[in-house]
Design a protein around this nucleic acid. Sequence first.
DNA 1: AGGATTCCCGACTGTTTTAGTCAAGTATGA
DNA 2: TCATACTTGACTAAAACAGTCGGGAATCCT
Lengths: 138, 138
Amino acid sequence: MKLGTKGRYAVMALVDLAYYGQGKPLALTEIAERQALPISYLEQLFLKLRQKGFVASTRGHLGGYTLAREPGTIRIAEILEAIGEPLKTTRCENTSEMGCLGTKEKCLTHALWTGLGVQMHQYLHRISLADLCERRIT
Amino acid sequence: MKLGTKGRYAVMALVDLAYYGQGKPLALTEIAERQALPISYLEQLFLKLRQKGFVASTRGHLGGYTLAREPGTIRIAEILEAIGEPLKTTRCENTSEMGCLGTKEKCLTHALWTGLGVQMHQYLHRISLADLCERRIT
DNA sequence: AGGATTCCCGACTGTTTTAGTCAAGTATGA
DNA sequence: TCATACTTGACTAAAACAGTCGGGAATCCT
């Protein structure tokens, strides 16, 4: 149960974008350098973030990325989902209330893992980019 | 961010042990069969669980494992820690309040990840084996 | 117009982790 | 003494992770 770099880097980069880019495009090279992240890796992440509508891009000289939504409306949970950071606590795919079908009896631990997943999602969903920029963490 | 089988299996097996083994030793083969888990893998896990004092073993015919502590006092978080399920949300090892030293400025996202870790740990620490056996999940 | 800058996109790869398996040994009860 | 069951370490195929690399396309500045 550990967080990968994809999720960490994506949030770091978006916080940087919200913090330093006041409406004007920020180049990835700048973000990557300031946050000490590999730029080619960031490109992959921003490709997805753009496709999902979190950021907008302008090409060419003086181009870069801008936030496409208000920082206060972007939840951390959304970011992680957008770039494909799993956040999975169970193995079974179905999100229904059914127990594990692998065993005959109802899986006693299933509620535990789904509960954990709910806790994590709730926490990450009630914190926005703006909260991070302004150091408003509970 | 996903839970591995080690953690899942360990909790499943201990719940099984608490649920079906009323003081008397349960053989690993029985637990493995009922929960549909690979037995050789379980052996590794129970080795650690025994060394950490969660279970006691009796060898030979009619042997097996018994819980060494009351189910109500065994927290899920303890189990995961005992078998080495990481539960890590940050990369840096230090648990102090310091920011990430890799970047010059204080890492804005650090509080987020440690906060997430706290959430997870609190949830898993307030649920005991007994809670699972009696389906007492919030 | 040309070159510098920047985003765009897919393919590829070394390393680490996961999720086990396998084999050999030891203790115990029937 | 034989079957059962725990004990322990070594080993491994496959997947995930964490990037790298190379080429292309759009845009701006001079």
